[in-house]
Write a protein that binds this DNA or RNA. Sequence first.
DNA 1: ATTTCATATGAAATATAATTCATACTATGA
DNA 2: TCATAGTATGAATTATATTTCATATGAAAT
Lengths: 100, 100
Amino acid sequence: MKRTIREPYKIFFETLGNKTRWDIIHLLQKGKLNVTAIVKTLGYEQSLISHHLGRLERCGFVGVEINKKERIYTLNKKTIKPLLKLMDKHINRYCKNLCR
Amino acid sequence: MKRTIREPYKIFFETLGNKTRWDIIHLLQKGKLNVTAIVKTLGYEQSLISHHLGRLERCGFVGVEINKKERIYTLNKKTIKPLLKLMDKHINRYCKNLCR
DNA sequence: ATTTCATATGAAATATAATTCATACTATGA
DNA sequence: TCATAGTATGAATTATATTTCATATGAAAT
């Protein structure tokens, strides 16, 4: 694909346009967690979660702290909170019933 | 796919996670246009543009006025403007170099 | 009423992304 | 230093989205 000036927009939103990643984001809203805990709670495969966490991290939506062998992921609320607010407002106003 | 409470998030952002749709959004930022004008300016196929406009409309990102035979599309700036602002801020702060 | 312009639509083809699977890595405790 | 817990990675598979193509629709002009 050609790389244009608008490529970052695509990547940014594409990252958020995935249900599994929203499951992770939603879970991390309640607090930071390591990979194993995320895996157990959501019931997905470990490698799947890792792939998604990697993507979320590269896009700056989550951060990671290292504690011994574990990696503890935290949500970037500075971005996610206002984003959620904006989205909810939009959906309520403009496409209450359906989308897509 | 299972339909969860987080499905709308997925649809909302997935719609924005597409370069062609951003080309359209970007163009409409300068002013309202009918389909033919969008097609000519962007150089894509007419049916491709129609498909994307349909999706953008269903998700409330554009609106449409009818004038004789033409359909004139307008950008929903109420949503797009703050969204762009938020995104630019995020990219500059957290993932300046790359994403994905 | 027929043609033409402007646009939409559905299905088929293609491209891209998500998921799984097997395996590798790395820090720690025995 | 060996084993293991915790996590990451790459390639193959599968699922999903985009694009194209052919055609339909609908309103206006002739």
